[in-house]
Design a protein around this nucleic acid. Structure first.
Lengths: 205, 205
DNA sequence: TAGGCTAGATTGACTGGTCAATCAACCAGT
DNA sequence: ACTGGTTGATTGACCAGTCAATCTAGCCTA
C-alpha cells in the first residue's frame, strides 16, 4: 500500500512524535507508570531514539511542561499591560487555562497532575515558573487594590495561590470526571470561579 | 483485674513506631523516594517487621491517611448538626485542617502531597473519602442558600472543590515554605480564605 | 520451681522482576 | 565514505516483598 499521507516536510519530525506520544501515554498511565518503551512504542519509534533527542525520561516531561507553561506566562504578561479591568484580567487568565484544557486535554492533564499539583516531584523543579503565574495574579490584585475596586485587607500573594488552587481543583474535577465537561460547563465553571473570587475581593461600601 | 491493655505498656508498640517513622520519612523524601528499609531504619526496627504489621508499603500510607482523614470527616459530621451560621461552619472546617497542620505538620504534609493532591496515585484510591469532605462543604453551602445568606447562582459541589482547592494551595505554601508559618500567619490565612470565600458567597442586596 | 511447649514477634539475607540508560551496529542521504 | 538519524538487545542498579531462622514471653505440667 502507498503511504496514506506523505509528510509535509522531507524529514518526519520524530522528536515531535516522541513528545506527542509522551503526552498521551503520560495522560493515560501517569508519569511513574510509564516506561520509556511505552513512549517509543506509541511514537512508532525505536527505544533508543528517545535518548537521542532527550537526555532522560524526565527531560521529556520537562520539555512538555515548559513548552505549554511559557505560553501561559506569555499570555499573562501581555495581559498586564492591557486596559481591561482587574476583574476582566482575572477572567482572562481563567479563560486561557480552561481553553488550554479544551484544546489539548491530555497535555493539560499531564501538566496539572504531574507538575502543578505534584509539588514534590516536578513541581519542585518548576516552582519558580509556577510561582511566576501566581505572581501575575498577585499583580492584578494589587492593581485592583490601587484602583480601589478590591479590598485592601487581603494579601495579593495569598490570593494568587488561592485563585490557582481553585482553578486547579476545577480542572481536576474534569480530569477525573467528577464533573461534566461540556462546552457550557466550561463556560459556567469559569464564570463561577471568577464570580466567586471577584465578589470575594470587592471592596465593600 | 481488667487492667489496661495487657502487654502494651511493657512492650514498645512497634507498629506505632513504624507508622511514626513512615510519617517523617515520607515527609522528608516523599513516598516514591522512600525505601521500605528507610522506614525500618528510622523506626529502629528490622526490615521484615514492616511486613509483619503491614501488607505492603502502600498499606502503611493508606493507614496514615485513613487515621487522620476519618478524624476530619468526623469533625465535619459533628459540625453539620450544630447551631453555627454557615459562615462559621466553613470557618470551623478551615480551622480544623489548619490546626491539624500545626499539630502535626509532617503528617498533614504527607496527606496533602501524597494523597489529596496526588490525584492519580493515592488520590485515586481515596477519592470517595476525599469527595466526602467536599460534600460536607457543599452541604453547608446548601444550608446557607436555604437560609438565604448565600447566593443561589453557585453550584454547591463546585464551591466544595474550590474551597478545598484554596485551602490546599495555602497549606502547600507553608509546606514548601513559600509563605511564613507563624501562629499569626495561620490565623491570618484562615481568616483570609474564609473571608474571601464567604464574601464571594454572600447574597447581594 | 524447673523445664518444656507454643504463638507471636523479630531479624536480615535473598530473590525476582522491573526499567532507565547505554552502546555498538546499521542505515540513508549526500 | 562520511555524517547523523535510527535501531533494539544488553547492562546494571534498584528495591518491594519473601522466608526461614531466631528470639521472647506467657503458660502448662510434674
Amino acid at each position: 500500500m502507498a503511504e496514506i499521507s506523505p509528510q509535509q516536510s522531507a524529514v518526519v519530525d520524530k522528536r515531535r512524535a516522541i513528545l506527542d506520544a509522551a503526552v498521551s501515554v503520560f495522560a493515560r498511565q501517569g508519569y511513574h507508570a510509564t516506561r520509556v518503551s511505552d513512549i517509543a512504542d506509541e511514537a512508532g519509534v525505536a527505544y533508543g531514539l528517545v535518548y537521542h533527542y532527550f537526555r532522560s525520561k524526565e527531560a521529556v516531561m520537562n520539555e512538555l511542561f515548559t513548552e505549554r507553561w511559557s505560553l501561559l506566562l506569555a499570555a499573562g504578561d501581555q495581559l498586564m499591560d492591557g486596559e481591561q479591568s482587574p476583574q476582566d484580567k482575572l477572567d482572562s487568565i481563567a479563560r486561557f487555562i480552561i481553553d488550554s484544557y479544551r484544546h489539548d486535554p491530555d497535555l493539560m492533564k499531564v501538566i496539572i497532575i504531574e507538575v502543578t499539583r505534584a509539588a514534590n516531584s516536578f513541581g519542585r523543579t518548576h516552582l519558580p515558573e509556577i510561582r511566576e503565574a501566581y505572581d501575575q495574579v498577585a499583580r492584578i490584585v494589587i492593581e485592583g487594590q490601587q484602583k480601589g475596586v478590591f479590598r485592601q485587607d487581603v494579601d495579593p500573594d495569598f490570593v494568587g495561590m488561592a485563585y490557582y488552587g481553585a482553578i486547579e481543583a476545577m480542572l481536576s474535577g474534569w480530569v477525573f470526571e467528577l464533573m461534566p465537561s461540556t462546552a457550557e460547563e466550561f463556560a459556567g465553571a469559569r464564570e463561577m470561579v471568577v464570580g466567586l473570587i471577584c465578589q470575594g475581593l470587592e471592596r465593600r461600601a
